[in-house]
Amino acid sequence: MPFLKSMVGRKIVMAVSGLMMALFVVAHLLGNTSIFAGPNGINAYAAKLHELAPVVWAYRLVMIILFALHVYYGIQLTLENQKAKPQVYAVKSSLSATFAGKSMIWTGSIIGFFLIYHLLQFTIQVTNPEISAGRNLDAVGRPDVFHMVVLSFQKSFIAFIYVGAMIALALHLTHGIQSFFQTLGLNNDRTFPVITKSGTLAAVIIFLGYIAIPLIIFIGILKG
């Protein structure tokens, strides 16, 4: 049976693509913290990325492939799993399965839809054209990413979407990170409990890091 049809092979694709995306999520968060340095921080960071366009595009291509593989096999495996358990128990008590683990397909889907919105909003900049960074340049002529982000998160609707999506991401990673180690066989009696706890901790740290930006702007600590 070919690798990409096998049970374990497809899980490995899920795990590797998932973890690479999670690493991207961390790198992206580190980049985003430049907003706390004010307009000069994030606008300079964004301008730098524009200069590196070929690298950024190569990067994006890799991310698109990873994302496509992850979503394709995620849906395929979930459908197979549902088929394998057609009848549920009248009474069922979960012994160790978590809410996060059982809702992977839902939290994943929320992340997917959020990603589309996020790209339309901050990358393609079509959802709120009046504050788009491409049209509004800062004092030194760079796209004003800082004001685009700040003006966006001052709207409760947008801040709410971001916090909600980050809850989904945190849940997805709570199960996903430990799952990665188990799927790749990087687990034994000693490491097992440590990996589960560290995975959750990493998910929580990523979560707090990400919600900090919309929340700090929304409650008015960081102003335009």
């Binding site: 497809r10 899980k11 495996l77 197979e80 088929k83 012994l95 160790s96 399965a97 992977m104 199960h175």
Partner: peptide
């Protein structure tokens, strides 16, 4: 045989 895939739930 129609068994599902492991989801690492550890049930």
């Amino acid at each position: 045989e129609g068994f599902g895939n492991c989801g690492n739930h550890y049930e």
